[in-house]
Design a protein around this nucleic acid. Structure first.
Length: 391
DNA sequence: ATATCCCGCCATTCA
DNA sequence: TGAATGGCGGGATAT
């Protein structure tokens, strides 16, 4: 029980962050994911790399990727591989969703049950038209366990739930919806008082997951219903994410970190952002900044960092050396760190940058040690996680 | 106590 | 088959 939080080898008295749920949230993971891949030169995403680079279990990657795909940020290309579309893919996806939502409403005169879930969307890749219907092993006798057909499974998928949730937000008149209501409305509403309670609770749990990544994408925002104190979510849409026609992730902190890390070219917009950002940690005089922009910038940063002081990653725990890792023609994972190290300059004007780097080094070291097969003293590039020393 | 929602077991689906 | 996916809900945090 709770052994999971053990970990953290505190050897040689480090400060050592106690376990924090926040640092492991899907929302944060999503932010990091986006900041890692939202670049012009990224067109494909390897789930293995993502999991490793972000230091999380693969299972979690599936979670965020599924909801992101539901809103058009990604598209599955092949096993373990997704095509990165970016924020520019959101408008189109939303358009389709809204369209579908409207169509559905017309379809069923009353908001009664049934109908819905018409797996709209453009994805046909899963076109498993080999319907079991007609096949012997259908065992559709509900009474038995639940064979759960492909369709049934898809209906309950995170992706589908995400789309339904978004549709709801896009069509509802109220400007905010509580997850409770959403759960009740989405899918089987009405009869079955019996286990509806449980099913509902389960769904709410999923909705929390979804809501977290959607807010991380700045599509929704958590608020509180004016009357009740009940928390609810408000649709934000794609506004406020575009500047000069260029779409970029709003939370700029991670963006900056990544740019610096990968030494990517900076766009005008980015340049502006960076300038604003760099003024954040130099508290002394922040009154001279173009207030509006700075405010927004700070707000975003604040939001992303959950009021914490820095960019945070979960404990780096590469899930099993994952076999020989199918030959990745892409820039290898390990080499990412190495090139990272050699491209970084000893000037950390931004505290977050510095901490992130340290984190990566620690992560890399522990990972390396693990791979090296326990022989803790195998020499490796970043012995002594001090980035500055290495340069 | 209630609201959140991380974690990872294990059923499914895929290659 | 083994690997890749991803339901699902127990139970640990956050409030």
């Amino acid at each position: 029980m709770t052994e999971s939080m053990a970990a953290e080898k505190t050897e040689s008295g480090g400060p050592h962050h106690a376990y924090s749920r926040k640092q492991k949230s899907l929302g944060l993971l999503c932010s990091n994911f986006v900041s890692l891949y939202d670049r012009d030169d990224v067109e494909t995403v390897c789930l293995d790399d993502a999991a490793m680079n972000l230091g999380v279990e693969r299972r979690r990657i599936y979670d965020i990727v599924n909801v992101m795909e539901s809103v058009g940020v990604l598209t599955r290309k092949a096993k373990n591989r997704y095509i990165w579309i970016g924020f520019k893919g959101i408008p189109g996806a939303l358009e389709l969703l809204k369209e579908g939502a409207v169509k559905e409403q017309n379809g069923s005169s009353l908001e009664c049950s049934s109908a819905k879930i018409s797996d709209d969307e453009d994805d046909d890749k899963y076109s498993d038209h080999n319907d079991d219907y007609g096949d012997g092993r259908l065992c559709s006798n509900d009474t038995a366990g639940k064979p759960r057909t492909a369709v049934e499974r898809k209906e309950k998928s995170l992706g589908q739930l995400t789309q339904n949730f978004v549709k709801l937000l896009l069509t509802t008149k109220a400007d905010m919806v509580s997850l409770d209501e959403a759960a009740k409305l989405l899918l089987g509403d009405g009869q079955d008082q019996s286990n509806m309670r449980n099913a509902n609770a389960a769904k709410v749990r999923r909705l929390y997951d979804i809501a977290n990544v959607l807010s991380s994408l700045n599509l929704i925002e958590k608020t509180h219903q004016s009357d009740t104190r009940k928390p609810a979510f408000r649709w934000l849409g794609t506004k406020a994410r575009c500047e000069n026609g260029v779409t970029i992730a709003l939370p700029p902190v991670a963006q900056q970190v990544r740019k610096r890390m990968f030494g990517t070219e900076i766009t005008n917009v980015e340049l502006k952002r960076r300038k604003l950002l760099s003024s954040i940690d130099s508290k002394p005089n922040k009154a001279q900044i173009p207030s509006q922009d700075l405010k927004e910038c700070n707000k975003a940063a604040q939001r992303q960092l959950h009021g914490s002081k820095s960019f945070v990653f979960g404990p780096f725990n590469p899930p099993k050396p994952h076999k020989e890792e199918a030959a990745e023609p892409k820039t290898g994972n390990v080499s990412d760190f190495e090139s990272l190290a050699s491209s970084l300059r000893p000037s950390y004007h931004n505290q977050a940058l510095h901490e992130l780097f340290v984190h990566y080094m620690e992560a890399y070291n522990s990972w390396f040690a693990e791979i090296a097969g326990g022989s803790s003293n195998t020499q490796h590039p970043f012995k002594d996680s001090s980035p500055l020393r290495h340069l």
